[in-house]
């Protein structure tokens, strides 16, 4: 039997969406430094370029370039509320599989650390397809996912490890709250988020299956990334 059968939308609701909704502000306070390749991708876009940040989280990439226009979206309304503080950009709450944007309309899209949260192979391909469908001819998408191969990270996974994992997020309780006797305030709380860790070559394969063409690909700090376009139908 396919292990994927137990997974899907309901599984992601419990193991991804509910978790981000609860850890939103703590998560946001730890996510402020843009990664170099993503920052460069956004800075090199021509002034006036219009695009999407699918799964924008706290909106840290919305702060990079004020001369382009980005519509960010996130599944978590708590994260979307944090992300909306970055003019001229905009933020909506949306699901990656049901993006509320016209097809073939955008110059670029980024989706950073999002696709690995979908819990079946088919849904991950569908998510990438959903992003690529928004691109107009010549438009480029930059997609980042967590790598299985991250021996140098503190998590230490190697290619021998299981690809579908639960990753803990520890929210430290505040000592001040504990001291003041506030309910629950002093205790550490651990949340688990579902991840599919991508193997070398797997992201490129998923892009192909999604009707895309890989323009550039690489590995940066425990992540696989691609720049992809929508394959032109001949």
């Amino acid at each position: 039997m396919d292990a994927d059968e137990a997974k899907g939308e309901t599984y992601e609701e419990e193991h991804v969406h509910v978790v981000y909704e609860q850890i939103a502000s703590h998560f946001s306070s730890t996510r402020y430094k843009p990664w170099p390749i993503i920052e460069r991708f956004l800075r090199e876009l021509p002034d006036g370029a219009i695009g999407l940040d699918v799964g924008c989280g706290n909106g840290k990439y919305l702060a990079v370039n004020p001369d382009i226009f980005i519509i960010g979206s996130d599944r978590s309304s708590n994260l979307a509320s944090i992300a909306k503080r970055h003019p001229p950009h905009s933020v909506v709450v949306a699901d990656i599989l049901y993006l509320p944007h016209p097809s073939r309309a955008f110059d670029f899209a980024i989706s950073i650390a999002v696709v690995h949260h979908l819990s079946t192979s088919w849904r991950r391909v569908e998510a990438i397809e959903s992003i690529l469908q928004t691109l107009r001819s010549g438009g480029k998408a930059l997609i980042y996912v967590w790598a299985l191969e991250q021996e140098s990270s503190r998590r230490g996974w190697t290619e021998q490890d299981e690809q579908d994992v639960m990753v803990p997020w520890v929210m430290r309780g505040s000592r001040k709250a504990a001291h003041a006797g506030e309910a629950g305030g002093g205790e550490d709380r651990t949340f688990h988020r579902y991840y599919h860790l991508y193997r070398k070559g797997e992201l490129e394969r998923d892009v192909q299956l999604a009707g895309g063409e890989v323009v550039e690909a690489g590995y940066e700090k425990d992540n696989w990334w691609v720049v992809a376009t929508l394959r032109t139908v001949v």
Partner: peptide, 9 residues
């Protein structure tokens, strides 16, 4: 709501 449109179906 609060300036954010929600497109979850």
């Amino acid at each position: 709501k609060e300036g954010i449109a929600n497109f979850l179906l």
